[in-house]
Design a protein around this nucleic acid. Structure first.
Lengths: 196, 196
DNA sequence: GATGTATAGTATCAGTTCGATATATAAATA
DNA sequence: TATTTATATATCGAACTGATACTATACATC
C-alpha cells in the first residue's frame, strides 16, 4: 500500500493478497495459482511480486504465517490475515478512483502498420483472434468456481466484464482488420513517405 | 528492445520512440506530448521512461541528436532516427504475438465488493462512468489529426479500437452495476462469512 | 506585489513490478 | 532411463511509474 499523498492508497499486489486471504489461509504458491487462473487476467503478478509482498505484509503485522511440513514436498508457509491486515485492506478498498490501465504492444504495433508487410499484419491479427477465442472458450460459460471456492458477487461481475470485453474486442478486430491490409493508395503513400 | 530468447523482441518504450521518429525529428518533450495525447492511452510512458530510452538509443547508434538553442527557453535536443534505428524498429515490429495487458485496480477492487459498503461501490462506479464519458467526449468524433500530423491508417484503427472498447465497457458497467449493490441475501451472507 | 499555474525544456531517483532463473524433490510420462 | 510436470520456496537485473528537481517566461488571480 503506497500513500498517494491525496488520502488514498494504491491497490497493489499486497492489497490483492490481503483480499485473497479473507477467503481463508493460503501459501504464496496457492496465491500464484489464483493469480494465474483469475486475477492475472486483469491484475498480473508473478513470484517476483508475491513473495516480497507477503514478506512486507508479515513484517508490518498484516499477515501471520505458520510453517507446515509436508512429506516429500517442501514446507508450506501458510499465511493468514490479521485484524490489522483487515484494516489495511479496507484502506486499500477506500480509493474512490481506482485505475484501469492498458499496456498494449499490440496497439502500439498497429499504429505502425504502414511500416509492416500485409503478411506480418495478418499473422499478428490471426494470433490475436486465436488468443481471444481461447480466452472466451475458457471463460465462456463458467459463472463460478475459480480459485478453489464459491465466486463472490464481485468476482462474477468481473468475469462477466472480461467476457464482454473480449467478445467486443474480437468483433472490432474482425470488422476492421481490412483497413490495415489490402494495400490501397493510402498505404503505399505512407510507406513511401516514411522512407523519404 | 529486449531479447525474449525465442527470436522475438519486446515492443518497449524504445521501439515506440523509434516509430514516432519515422514521422520526423522530435525532442523528448515532443514525444512526451505524443504519449499524453495518443499512445499513453494504451502504452503509457513518462519522462522517467522516455529520456533513458533516448539515451540508450543514442548510445547504440539508433538515433542521432542535435542541440538546438532557443531564445528564452532551454535548448532542445532534437532526435532523428538512423538507418540502424530503422532496422531495429523492424525487428521490434516482427513479433507475431504482441502482448495486450490490463492492470486494473478497478476490477481487482470489484472482486472484493462484498467487503465494501454500497456507498463506496456506487462512488467508484460513478467515477468510472464519468471517466469513460470524458474519454468518449474527447475521442468521440476525431478520426484524424493527433500528435501533430495526419493520422496513419494504423492510428485510425487504434483510435476506433479505443472508442469501441470504451463504449462497450460503459455499457457493461451500466447494465450490471446493480448486481454489486442492492444488498440481497447473497451480499449479507458473504460479508458475514468474511468476518467469521 | 505576491502567489499560482501553465508552458517549454531537461533530467534523475526511489519504489515497484516483470520475467527469468535457482534450488529441491517426487511423480508421471515418453 | 530421460524428460517433463507439479509442488514449493526465493532472488536478481532490467524496466517502468510517478514524483520531484531545476531553469525560465508569461499570464492570471488574490
Amino acid at each position: 500500500m503506497v500513500d498517494r499523498h491525496d488520502g488514498t492508497w494504491t491497490m497493489d499486489v499486497k492489497t490483492v493478497c490481503l483480499g485473497m486471504l479473507t477467503d481463508g489461509p493460503a501459501s504464496g504458491y496457492d496465491m500464484k495459482k489464483c493469480f494465474e487462473s483469475t486475477f492475472g487476467h486483469f491484475f498480473p503478478a508473478g513470484y517476483g511480486s508475491i513473495y516480497p509482498a507477503l514478506a512486507t505484509l508479515a513484517r508490518n503485522g498484516f499477515v501471520e504465517f505458520e510453517e507446515v511440513p509436508q512429506d516429500g514436498k517442501p514446507d508450506r508457509k501458510v499465511y493468514s490475515i490479521t485484524e490489522e491486515g483487515r484494516e489495511e485492506l479496507h484502506k486499500g478498498l477506500a480509493n474512490p478512483k481506482p485505475s484501469h490501465k492498458v499496456r498494449s504492444e499490440f496497439l502500439a504495433m498497429m499504429c505502425f502498420a504502414h511500416l509492416m508487410s500485409d503478411e506480418q499484419i495478418d499473422e499478428v491479427i490471426d494470433n490475436k483472434l486465436l488468443e481471444l477465442d481461447g480466452f472466451l472458450n475458457l471463460f465462456g460459460e463458467c459463472p463460478a468456481e475459480r480459485c478453489g471456492g464459491k465466486a463472490s458477487i464481485g468476482t462474477q461481475f468481473v468475469a462477466g466484464f472480461g467476457r464482454h470485453i473480449a467478445s467486443s474486442l474480437r468483433t472490432y478486430i474482425k470488422d476492421n482488420r481490412g483497413m490495415l491490409t489490402s494495400s490501397d493508395g493510402e498505404k503505399i503513400r505512407l510507406a513511401a513517405g516514411s522512407r523519404q
